[in-house]
Structures are given as structure tokens and as C-alpha cells.
Write a protein that binds this DNA or RNA. Sequence first.
DNA 1: ACAATTTGTTACCAATAGGTACGAAAAAGT
DNA 2: ACTTTTTCGTACCTATTGGTAACAAATTGT
Lengths: 206, 206
Amino acid sequence: MTGDGTKRGRGRPKSLSRQEVIDLAMNAYWREGPAEVSLNSICQRAGVAKPSLYREFGDEDGLTAAVLQAYADAVLSQVLRIVTGPESFDQKVEDLIRYASEDALSDNGCLYVKMQAATHRFGEKTQALIAAIDAGAEEAYAALLTDARRTGHAPESIPTRLGARYMMSQITLALVLRAAGEEPLLVRDLLTLALSVFPSDKQDRH
Amino acid sequence: MTGDGTKRGRGRPKSLSRQEVIDLAMNAYWREGPAEVSLNSICQRAGVAKPSLYREFGDEDGLTAAVLQAYADAVLSQVLRIVTGPESFDQKVEDLIRYASEDALSDNGCLYVKMQAATHRFGEKTQALIAAIDAGAEEAYAALLTDARRTGHAPESIPTRLGARYMMSQITLALVLRAAGEEPLLVRDLLTLALSVFPSDKQDRH
DNA sequence: ACAATTTGTTACCAATAGGTACGAAAAAGT
DNA sequence: ACTTTTTCGTACCTATTGGTAACAAATTGT
């Protein structure tokens, strides 16, 4: 009924929609925290039997990894697009601040920071995926900072690697605060203040 | 054997040392994360029977609250003493940075930030305690910023409440990074950069 | 019609969670 | 010696966890 229509092979047609389960699990992980949502409860809410889930995802690690992957594809890619885009440094900073404090974030949620904060709870696949996403993000931020150095937005007092880690951790902090229910406007001001260590074009750069 | 020596009353002398259990639980919570340490395992490691624990702490919520309280008394009070002390703003900032990046933190651990990040997992008492500690910290930081405003370390572009929340979240961020196993020197540099938005006496203040 | 194949579902498993009933043990008061 | 009081500890409870065996159902290929 809900299976995708790719020419199906031989057996019984599947009624389990992989995407539906992932979306449901993603939402549950986000709202209640990954540690509080059991595989059993996911089956219950999705209205599917446990062995169906296990056939689709292998084990719990497979499910969490699939959810995180879907989240990375849907949400984290937006951040990466901002960071690696062709805009000016000032514009990127502005976009990042706006993204981290926008209201829509409450619905999507920043699941990644929640999973990152509880890495040890997950299996090998999920941990490896978290590490990979982390590495990719750090690389992107490093490129951003290298570029900022050329345009004079990153002074010599801020080494490239330090600046990259700084931006990354500040963005993460903003998302964590949002995840904790903090007001978007306050988060916006906090992040703006944190990123003000990078001189913008509008400020006088002595 | 290990009970404290206050004139004991009538019944069988207790062999359970409240402080020993708290210390052991505190260490376990810190190293493995509060979500991964069960009450059963604490009993096992401490070598005490479960009913003994329940008589002493009531329930799991009572234990986690007692551990957090002990942690607040032992560790968090140090941060508060720095913030509310009589030193200059510059000196306080320096002390905070040094504290957050010192090596000894790895042993003590910053349990608070771990429990704060997983608030929903705990019972009412523990949650209330977390909220109380949070409120106290914010108040102290607000006082610090009010003082900084007088001495010119907090420019008008940074409202008092924003500045207080900023300092608090940056300190917390540093402790979280330490908890995640980040190198002390990197954390030190990150925190130094973040707090450089407050002009120090050594910098020229236009 | 019948075998092959794939999915779904019921019912179960061992392990562990937080929590407790109850009797044995050890002290003090009488 | 005997009762009282307090703590200890074995053995148990129910609920839930991640995970699976085995069988029923539904489809395609022959």
C-alpha cells in the first residue's frame, strides 16, 4: 500500500514504508531524546511488527543510523550549503545566524546535536556516521575560514583551525540552546555576539 | 564500620557509607553518562544491597539529586567563588578560562553539564535541583556583568542580561567540550576567543 | 495448480530496569 | 534474658528492553 512502486520482484508486497518509519522515529528522537525512545515504542507508534523493522534496518543501530542519515540529507545539508556557497563571508555569517535562530527549527529540530551529545549510546554504524558528519563539517568550516583569511575577516590573531573550530562550536551551541527551548531572539543575539569576533565589512577594521 | 561516628541510637550499626556511595555514583555518572549507569550496577560496584540504597536515598531520583548536590557543593562552588569574588573583571575572566581548561577537570569532571544536557531523564527532585543551580548561576553572572558595566568592560552594545547569558553559555560550552574529550589547550583558546568580546584593560578601548 | 520467494505477525526469549516483602542480624534499653 | 529498634540482604515482583523462531499471507515464476 505504501511501498514505493519500483518494479517489485517476487514475494509478498511490503506494506512497510521505510520513509514513514524514519520520519516518525526522527520526530520521536527529536522530541523526547534518542535515549528515551525504544525500538518497541517506535514499532507501536508506526503500527508495524518488530520483525518487519528488523528486516528493514538490521538492528537498532541500523535504524538510528538511517534516521541520522536522513536527517543529514534533509537538514544538515542546508548548513553545509550556506558554509560552502559562493556568497561573501559577511553574508554567510548572516545566513548562519538567521538559520540557527529561525522558528522552523523547532519542527525539524536539530537532531544531530542531540545524537552527538549522546554518542556513546549508539552502535558502531551510528557512531561512525556521527564522526563522518563531524569531519565533513570541520573541513567545510576550515575552508570557510581559509577564505575569510584572504578577505580580511579573520585576523592573524585567529589561526585558521581555531577559527574553524570556533565557528563550528558556536553554531552547535546555538542549536543546543534552541533544542533546550531557548527563545530564538536570545539565541540570535548570543550567536551574533559570539561571531562578532570576526570583523565584518560594516565595522571599521583598523 | 564506615558509618559516621555521631552518637548512634538503638538499632544495628550501619555499614553503608552515604558519602562512599555518592562518590562512587558521581564518578560512574561522569565517566559513563548518567543514562548508562543503573541503580543496580551502583549497588553492585558499591557492594551494598539494593534495599539499603533505597532506605538511604528513597528512590533513584533521591540518589541522583544527592549526587548532584554533592557535586555542586564540591565543584560548582569553585566557579561561583570566582564569579562572585572581589577580584577585577580581567582577573575573573582569566581565572574562569584557566579553570575551564585545567587538567584536573578530567578527574572531577563537569558532571553538571552532563546532567543538564539530559534533564528529562531525571525525576522531580533532580530536575528542580538543576533548575535551582541554573538560576543561581545566572544570577551570579548577572551581578558580574553589572559590575563589568561600571568598570567599562561591558560596552553598551552588550546588554547586561545578554552578557550574563553569554558568559554562562560560553563557560558551559567549554566544559562540554572538555567532557567530550577535547584538548585543554584548544578549549582554552576557544574560550579566550569567545570572551574577547569583552574588552580587557590591556587592550586599547577606543 | 504448485513451488519459490518475500513480507507480515504472533508469540516468545534472556537480560535488565526500578522497586519491595520479609526474615535474619546486630545493636541499645529494660 | 527479653523486647525494641534499626539495618542488612536474599529473593522476589512487574515492566520493558533488544532480539528471534516459526508460521501465515501474499505475490511471481513455471
